[in-house]
């Protein structure tokens, strides 16, 4: 068997397949596709954009407050430790 013959046969089958395989879009699928904008808009209307943004803003505020509180706590802890060490270092003066 020659490669050329095989190639020609493959092309013939492909051509017949290509021509016969193309089908018009089924009507019910076309209708389903035309419904897409309405369906998407309805889904978006279920949760209004304002609510989504309000929720996101609330969440961001909560995270920011937590971060701020954590930072303040750390600062206080460091200050307390420093103050304690300072006091302890000079305790021998108390007896004098």
């Amino acid at each position: 068997m020659s490669i050329d013959k095989n190639e020609r046969w493959m092309n013939e089958v492909l051509e017949s397949a290509v021509n016969s395989e193309k089908r018009p879009l089924p009507e019910q699928l076309r209708n389903r596709l035309l419904e897409i904008p309405k369906r998407v808009e309805n889904t978006m209307m279920v949760v209004p954009k304002f609510q989504v943004w309000a929720f996101a803003a609330g969440l961001a505020l909560l995270i920011a407050m937590n971060a701020f509180a954590l930072q303040k706590t750390r600062e206080n802890e460091t200050a307390t430790v420093e103050a304690t060490s300072y006091t302890e270092y000079f305790t021998h003066y108390n007896s004098i």
Binding site: E21, K22, R23, P24, L25, P26, L29, R30, L33, L34, I36, P37, K38, E41
Partner: peptide, 23 residues
């Protein structure tokens, strides 16, 4: 989000996509 333009898009390209995916 114009619905008319979208239906035009469907009429021009949906068959091509459908046949590609069927294949």
């Amino acid at each position: 989000g114009d619905h008319h333009e979208f239906s035009l898009l469907i009429d021009l390209h949906a068959e091509m996509v459908y046949n590609l995916l069927r294949g």
